[in-house]
Design a protein around this nucleic acid. Structure first.
Length: 618
DNA sequence: GGGGTATGTCATGAG
DNA sequence: CACTCATGACATACC
């Protein structure tokens, strides 16, 4: 069954390619999505990672070609999809592509039909039977009346699903563009509503009347005009839909609270908001993901169609993929979490300390890890402790290991790494003996390199205290207070030890703070990149909208000419369309005004037949 | 010697 | 109220 499906799909795609080469688009996305989706295939046995991980959406993009090498079926699937997309990109009509097939199927011979315009073709196939029937009637009617308005069918009908355009236009429209288009739409609709509301006036009435022609409000609207009207009613479908999240996401990153904590939390917990939702050029994807994939975040699908972002996209997708992979790892085998690369865990942990290890080591070869351990030997608690514990093996590390036999993983998971477990050092009797040994260890190392010892460490040693600055900083406050009491220290010594502890903690806090600041900057850079991509998308959307607007304007002009050609003056003489123009206002008034002068107008309202046509006569 | 960077330290406010 | 943390500002060391 699986292979049959595969071969059938292959043949279907080949047929689609052939049809695409001649300009006919056959939408097999639904088939591919519904019957050959890797998600469906995954139901047969693959792990849930296939379901949860949106690899297949990335595979459609340049950045996703190497995403998912696990499943050969996915390779076939993605290859097919890519091939189909490429063919479509080369040969498919730019606009209203699916209407081509519908037009070809239901084409009715008509000399006036605008067959040559590939973009303006019939409506959706769902209404094809009905439309074809209407079309025949219109043909007969227009053959009788001499009207030729079949080009009206080129505009999407009310029944046409808006996804046709939203599929084709992978971008959402811009707000001002929408307003502009809607203005035009309102104008058109006003005119056509006026025509619609007019009484049943046959074209013969218009043509044969020897008297003053009835007002425009009485003009009957033929079915084709109603189609045209309905098309204008549905003009929103012609224009890519607005970006509902545009306002929020545009404002969000810019007016973002500068709190670094918020930046980090936002980045980790909610990943990235869907800054942009560029739908795939594979049109049927637009309505599939949410339904078929359920809880998959829309942002995961948002990148699939944009191949222009290259590095940025790849990096961002890499982030998505990493998170997705880790999610699946966690879901599939939480028990083996310890087998995950600790470095990845460190990078993903919320601990600023653990996070810092990577950047710090990369940024400065001579990190403070050495100094913290070797020079100062004091206020560590920094991620370098891990290195000290795990790799150095020096006296300092050994001392720490002996003094604080804490599980390192547990140790570094927490943000406040300097807060040692209380059960390990809850009583002075527990930590005093190790302190001596640590002291000896540290002293032996410090003697080797005394010049690199920290200032506080040296001063602590100068006091002859049996503990290091590191211990002073990292021990629990109860132990620290108990230590101050037990050691019978003088007031300056107590003050000094408090300062040592305060400085050590503040040093760690500063390191964390700088790390957060750095992360916030990186996050904001990502936001900026996303906004730039979104800006490009909006610009492209604007261009598309302008094209649609231009097409509507042309059709409106043609309609006006047709209407004007059927109007007559009081002498029964037909108006010369080249001398007049129809102007529709937002309040429903239709004004026939001369092209040269706009002072005298003939206003025709929808219900009230304002017969002022005489006024505008030349 | 000046600029850039990294780091430590202090002051301050908030929790 | 003491402690801890976050963070801006400043100082210092290093390249």
């Amino acid at each position: 069954m699986h292979h049959m499906k595969k071969y059938f799909t292959e043949g279907l795609i080949q047929l689609t390619i052939l049809l695409s080469l001649i300009g006919v688009r056959v939408d097999v996305d639904s088939y591919l999505n519904g019957y050959f989706s890797p998600l469906i295939e995954a139901d047969g046995g693959p792990s849930s990672a296939f379901i949860q991980t949106p690899f297949h959406h990335y595979r459609d993009t340049a950045a996703g070609h190497q995403v998912h090498p696990k499943c050969p079926e996915l390779d076939y699937f993605f290859t097919s999809r890519r091939l189909l997309d490429e063919v479509r990109a080369l040969g498919s009509p730019a606009r209203f592509p699916t209407r081509v097939s519908a037009w070809l199927v239901h084409l009715v011979p008509d000399d006036n039909a605008d067959i040559g315009e590939p973009n303006n073709l019939s409506g959706d196939s769902g209404n094809d039977e009905i439309n074809a029937e209407n079309l025949r009637e219109e043909v007969e009617d227009d053959h009788r009346t001499g009207l030729s308005v079949y080009q009206d069918h080129s505009i999407p009908r009310p029944g046409c699903p808006t996804e046709e355009l939203s599929k084709e236009d992978t971008l959402q429209n811009q707000e001002d563009e929408e307003v502009e288009v809607k203005d035009q739409e309102e104008t058109s609709c006003a005119l056509l509503n006026t025509l619609t509301q007019s009484s049943a006036l046959e074209p013969e009435d218009l043509l044969g009347s020897s008297t003053l022609p009835p007002p425009l409000s009485d003009v009957v609207v033929l079915p084709q005009w109603q189609d045209f009207l309905s098309e204008f009613d549905n003009f929103d479908s012609m224009v890519p839909q607005p970006i509902p999240y545009l306002e929020a996401d545009l404002s969000n990153p810019i007016s973002y609270d500068a709190s670094l904590r918020d930046a980090m939390v936002t980045r980790r917990e909610i990943c990235r908001p869907p800054l942009f939702r560029l739908e795939s050029t594979n049109s049927s994807h637009s309505d599939q993901p949410q339904s078929s994939l359920g809880a998959l975040p829309s942002s995961l699908f948002s990148l699939s169609g944009n191949s222009s972002r290259n590095e940025t996209t790849q990096s961002r997708m890499g982030g998505y993929l990493d998170e997705a992979v880790f999610e699946h790892i966690n879901m599939l085998d939480l028990g083996n979490l310890g087998t995950v690369d600790p470095q990845m865990l460190l990078d993903d942990s919320d601990s600023g300390l653990s996070l810092e290890s990577g950047s710090r080591s990369a940024a400065s070869p001579s990190t403070s890890s050495d100094s913290l351990c070797e020079e100062e030997g004091g206020a560590t608690g920094y991620s370098s402790e891990v290195e000290s514990f795990s790799s150095k093996g020096g006296a300092c590390a050994a001392a720490y290991r002996d003094w604080s036999p804490v599980d390192l993983n547990e140790y570094i998971w927490h943000d406040h790494t300097y807060s040692l477990p209380q059960d390990q050092n809850s009583t002075s009797s527990c930590w005093v003996p190790p302190l001596k040994s640590i002291k000896q260890e540290v002293m032996s190392e410090d003697e080797a390199e005394p010049e690199e010892m920290g200032r506080d460490e040296r001063r602590v040693q100068a006091l002859g205290l049996p503990f290091s600055a590191f211990q002073i900083v990292n021990m629990p406050v109860e132990d620290f207070l108990e230590l101050l009491d037990r050691q019978d220290l003088s007031e300056p010594q107590v003050s000094f030890l408090r300062d040592v502890r305060r400085r050590g903690k503040n040093k760690l806090a500063a390191q964390n703070c700088r790390k957060r600041k750095l992360d916030a900057i990186v996050s904001l850079q990502g936001e900026v990149e996303g906004l730039m991509v979104q800006r490009d998308a909006v610009l492209r959307q604007r261009a598309n909208t302008a094209k649609a607007l231009s097409a509507v304007a042309e059709r409106f002009e043609a309609l006006s000419q047709t209407v004007l050609s059927r109007l007559q003056d009081e002498c029964g003489q037909p108006l010369r369309p080249e001398n007049y123009t129809l102007h529709c206002s937002a309040n429903g008034r239709v004004v026939v005004q001369p092209r040269t002068s706009r002072t005298s107008r003939t206003t025709v309202t929808g219900g009230k037949t304002a017969k002022r046509k005489k006024d505008k006569k030349p």
